[in-house]
Design a protein around this nucleic acid. Structure first.
Length: 194
DNA sequence: TGAATGATCACG
DNA sequence: GTGATCATTCAT
């Protein structure tokens, strides 16, 4: 399967966040393919979104959010965890989709090793777990996700889960708590817990 | 130079 | 419910 192209990401962030549900995220490293179905995302905008890192303009950390769509934005938070985003919108406009949860597909034993957990629903059911399962750190920020080895594709088969996608407020933020910019597959055990 | 904060997780 | 743990940001 071919990677999703830059034009997919160069659109409204909430639309991209919604449409990324059900797609497959892949990272091929050291001859091992790690992949999962995206089952939970959140949209973060720019100047009009007080919960976004880009709310107050460009900083050294967030500058990739203002750059070209389809790039990774990885940041370190709470002294322990990394979070993976994919940049959206036209160049010069801030936006990114936080990848909150994956349903593991390939490379499960490698994810179990990295996470020190066995159960499928513990491997990538939260943004910090996603990056730990795939071994993603700030070194992987700014990568071009429209080409291998780190990319997103259409799922195998039909995208049936669109019927079951829910939208709610975003998790873990202190501002803009009401807008429904979180999307997830209802009933999927790999979605993060409330 | 310092203090506050944080798009989290695991454990009890 | 709470502690861990530190990079980032903004104010001083």
């Amino acid at each position: 399967m071919k990677p999703l192209r830059e034009a997919f990401y160069r659109r409204n962030t909430a639309v991209v966040a919604f449409e990324l549900i059900g797609k497959t995220l892949l990272f091929e490293r050291d001859g091992i393919v790690l992949s999962g179905r995206i089952v939970e995302t959140e949209a973060y905008f720019g100047a009009d979104d007080p919960a976004s890192h880009a709310y107050r303009g460009v900083t050294p950390r967030n500058e990739v959010m203002f750059g070209r769509a389809g790039r990774s934005y990885v940041y370190f938070t709470y002294g322990n965890h990394h979070c993976l985003n994919i940049v959206t919108e036209e160049e010069g406009v801030a936006g990114a989709v936080l990848i909150r949860s994956l349903e593991p597909l390939r490379g499960i034993s490698e994810m179990q090793k990295r996470r020190k957990r066995m159960h499928i629903h513990e491997l990538a059911s939260g943004p910090g777990k996603v990056t730990e399962a795939l071994g993603i750190t700030r070194e992987h920020s700014g990568w071009n996700l429209t080409e291998k080895p780190f990319y997103v594709t259409e799922p195998e088969g039909a995208r049936e889960e669109w019927l079951h996608i829910r939208a709610t407020s975003r998790i873990g933020i202190s501002r803009a708590k009401t807008v429904p910019f979180r999307f997830y597959v209802q009933g999927n055990s790999c979605v993060s817990k409330r």
